[in-house]
Amino acid sequence: MKLGARMMKTGLAVAVALYISDLLPFVSPLLAAIAAVFSIQPSIYRSYQSIIEQIQGNTIGALIAVVAVFTLGNDPFIAAFAIIVVIGITTNLKMNENTISLAVVAVIALMDTTDLTFIHFASARFSSMLLGILAAFVVNLVFVPPKYETRLFRKIDVSTTDILQWLRVTTRQLSDQPALKYEITRIQDDLRWIDHTYLLYEEERTYFKGSRFSKGRKLVLFRQLITTTKKSFDVVKAFYRLEHKIEQIPDEFQDALVGELDKLINAHEKLVLSLKGRIKQTHKQSLRQIEEPDIPLLVDRLMHVYEETNNPDKLVFLPLASQLMEYYYQLEKLKRLLKSYQTHHKEDYIKT
């Protein structure tokens, strides 16, 4: 079992809420712990949004519970009616599910039968909920702040490496089909995780002007890096679908296809290494000249080969040609963005 930061934060928030509850005799430890569990969020910005929304939702739930008790009593059917009203209001206000659930808990807690004065009882229960919300916010703010830039780039780096390895193997018709089919599904899941993490990284706020400009350029760079990785994955899937038809391509063109794709893969790897700060921006001539890929010429040759034949299956290679062109253009765009970023932020590498 893998313990993530959010699991530990949830446990710590509950512990903090329970500990403070023991110091305050009028606070309910159970309600404070429940509120802490519902209030933990994956990012500091979302935690800030959550605390505002949770307080609003609990206030709505508390007000409706108080009005219901003073006007109608605390009969179970009246409590059910109050819960329906709270759900309706919070849903119309487009609050998230955790906020709605906690507001419902507030109604149930406040409409419970008690021998105490209702106002004193309601105040103690409401304070317990607020204590749990605040405990979760403080823990989320202080304990292991999420480093989404590092996590995002690491996952992109690993996924890109896997994709490019499969692209090398697939273009040489050496890939094991069942293994590649499984890897395609796994990589698709990884790309969904990358999209989700990018949104969390985008939500993180910066408070200094210089950092704000750097963060904005990094967001653009990351978005293009993700797009380029997805395009390389599309090429792998295109080769996977054409596995049994590749032999229809003339041998001479197959050699050219493998050669140009190797150049494309090398260019992609070079850009990722440059993002890590492992390649000099100005360097001497290497021992072996690194040639730039010429995919437009390759695609033009592919179209020319099949225009001269009467092969009815020639159109199945059009998606491959399209994916190759898209991959090439996105890679060129990534190269321009990286050059621009490194011009303005020479010492600010991606955190790895």
Results as ranks from 00 to 15, higher is better:
F126S: 05
F126T: 12
S127D: 04
S127F: 01
S128K: 02
M129H: 06
M129S: 09
M129W: 00
L130E: 01
L131N: 03
L131P: 00
G132T: 05
I133L: 00
L134W: 00
A135T: 07
A135F: 00
A136C: 06
A136L: 03
A136M: 07
F137N: 05
F137Y: 11
F137D: 01
V138D: 00
N140F: 07
V142F: 03
V142G: 11
V144S: 11
P145E: 08
P145L: 03
P146Y: 00
K147S: 14
K147V: 14
Y148D: 07
Y148K: 03
Y148N: 13
Y148C: 05
E149L: 07
R151H: 13
R151Q: 14
L152N: 08
F153S: 04
F153D: 03
F153T: 07
R154M: 04
R154A: 03
K155Y: 12
D157F: 10
V158E: 14
S159K: 05
S159W: 04
S159M: 03
T160M: 09
T160R: 10
T161E: 12
D162C: 11
I163D: 01
L164G: 01
W166A: 07
L167G: 02
V169D: 10
T170Q: 05
T171Y: 01
R172H: 07
R172W: 01
L174C: 03
S175P: 11
S175W: 06
S175G: 15
A179T: 15
K181T: 13
K181N: 15
K181P: 11
Y182R: 14
E183L: 09
T185L: 11
T185N: 14
R186C: 09
R186I: 07
Q188F: 14
D189P: 05
D189M: 15
D190C: 12
D190I: 09
L191P: 01
R192Q: 14
W193I: 09
W193P: 00
W193T: 09
I194F: 11
D195E: 15
H196C: 04
H196Y: 15
T197W: 07
Y198W: 12
